[in-house]
Design a protein around this nucleic acid. Structure first.
Lengths: 208, 208
DNA sequence: TTATATCTGTAGCGACCGATACAGAGTCAA
DNA sequence: TTGACTCTGTATCGGTCGCTACAGATATAA
């Protein structure tokens, strides 16, 4: 946020960087994931990334830009394939069953401190970090939109009752998905998340 | 948390307090609700409560104790009656339909900055505020337990399919409820929350 | 009246926050 | 070899955090 919209400079001249930028980003992601955006301090980030503050600011701009880069990395690494599978599986019941099954895995994955970064990392932020939360909200809105679109297609293909409101069902599915992050953060096991995920089949009005 | 477990002293001697303790607590609740636990600074709390820091610390102990007192006030004021109604209504379908309907109202109530304090106020906290989050988790666990007990009773009274896992269904209902707080925080309208609430009837396996 | 106790406002404590000034080190083009 | 350039570590900036020392004000109890 703030001033510089450009992301990574690094021309060919000058002293070369002595750390792995991608590895440092992944380390930063771990801290943001565990702590959330604001509780993750620059000093803790630097310790995890094994660099000093000037290196962090030279490579990533500022804390907000580092965070958003970590969020993008998180989305592409953990969720993109799952979202796309949901869009590709022909039967909507099968697609959503698979999606929530995979979500239960992701939200309790080994390297995850549990829960989704996009949902949890900026739920409480002070006024000056509202821009960061707004950026995350765009991701969340997109997720709800994907679910709504998938439901709408399921209706038009006759797999879900024709009188179903796609936006309402998409919102409900997204609400359950976001709730699963809170459950994971509160220590729900993978089996418990699978139980929640399995309830999705009951939420879909089958075509009579 | 920390040292003093006792809450309000105030003997009969000494200079009397010149502000309304209950009114100040309600003002503090508003700030915690809007901002969350850690982003709510002492200076912002003091401004809203119209007192100075020494008065705050004399009357409430410290920030964590003030917060927990605000949480207790919030629970009793906004949720206790709704929880008890759910326990009292004989038919479980009617009880849960009514509960989620009321929850949709509470989570979008006028004086609410949207969402549940217990769910949202401490999702991102630094390490030293983990005790506060643990206290909130106890509230959240209690909510899930109430839902589970109500489901179990519905099963034993033959209103829900006998092969239903009460803990699993209780957890699922609680997950949807907690997700509704995130939806409200992201700007969902009362009508949208009502739509989500209405989906609960499909989650309950009717007794065949 | 005096002693004791508690509240009130001012003013500021040490600790930490995000972010940087600076000088030295390393790599490039000329 | 020189100069331009960028990264590196140290040391620190101004600002805010939660919290409190202090002195004055106001009440009760003796």
């Amino acid at each position: 946020m703030t001033d510089t919209p450009i992301i990574p400079p690094h021309k060919s001249k000058g002293r070369p960087r002595t750390f792995d930028r991608d590895a440092a980003l992944i380390s930063a992601l771990g801290v943001f994931w565990r702590r959330g955006y604001e509780p993750a301090s620059i000093s803790e980030l630097c310790a995890a990334m094994e660099i000093n503050p000037p290196s962090l600011y030279a490579a990533f701009g500022n804390k907000a830009q580092l965070f958003m880069e970590a969020v993008n990395h998180y989305e592409t690494t953990y969720w993109d394939a799952t979202w796309e599978r949901m869009a590709e599986v022909p039967d909507v019941h099968e697609a959503l069953r698979g999606f929530f099954h995979e979500a239960a895995q992701i939200l309790t994955s080994q390297d995850a401190p549990c829960g989704c970064l996009v949902i949890l990392a900026a739920t409480n932020v002070s006024a000056e970090a509202e821009e960061v939360n707004a950026s995350l909200k765009a991701f969340r809105d997109e997720g709800r939109e994907w679910l709504t679109r998938r439901v709408r297609r399921g209706i038009s293909e006759g797999q879900i009752a024709g009188d179903t409101d796609p936006a309402g069902l998409g919102l409900t599915l997204n609400t359950l998905l976001e709730g699963m992050s809170l459950a994971a953060r509160d220590g729900a096991t993978r089996e418990e998340l699978e139980t929640i995920a399995a309830s999705v089949q009951r939420l879909l009005p089958a075509n009579a």
